[in-house]
């Protein structure tokens, strides 16, 4: 069952920018592109843990602020020669409102607790 909760409004995020959402599985970065698309990915670069929310957004990609790895916001995969991926999270738009599926977060958190 999905549980869509509002995490903010489109205008809360600058175009070509990002904001963070705190969750039990760590921070999630929510991006807004120049074309007003929104994407959510794990706020942690698989290379050295850089906060991707702080990177420069270009098209539907972000460049990590620590060592310039580039990630697709849509698939979470590293671009170019780098290999790695971040987890992506589904978002829904309802007009200005941006919604995130809390049940997916809880499921991920539960899976992590089980694994530990």
């Amino acid at each position: 069952m999905s549980d869509w909760v509002e995490i903010g409004r489109l205008s809360d995020i600058p175009q070509r920018g990002a904001r963070c959402v705190d969750t039990p599985i760590g921070r999630i970065a929510v991006f807004r592109t120049a074309a007003d698309e929104v994407y959510a990915i794990e706020d942690r670069c698989p290379h050295k843990g850089g906060p991707l929310s702080q990177g420069i957004v270009h098209g539907a990609q972000v460049t990590c602020p620590l060592h310039n790895w580039v990630f697709s916001l849509e698939t979470g995969f590293a671009q170019g020669a780098d290999e790695g991926a971040v987890r992506t999270f589904a978002l829904k738009r309802d007009g200005e409102r941006i919604l995130m599926d809390a049940s997916a977060i809880l499921a991920a958190a539960a899976a992590r607790i089980a694994a530990e």
Binding site: G8, R19, V21, D22, A102, I105
Partner: peptide, 16 residues
Amino acid sequence: KHEFKPMASVGFAEAA
């Protein structure tokens, strides 16, 4: 000021 604060919390017990 938006730069310095998380936008929301999701998935914590109270938020869910």
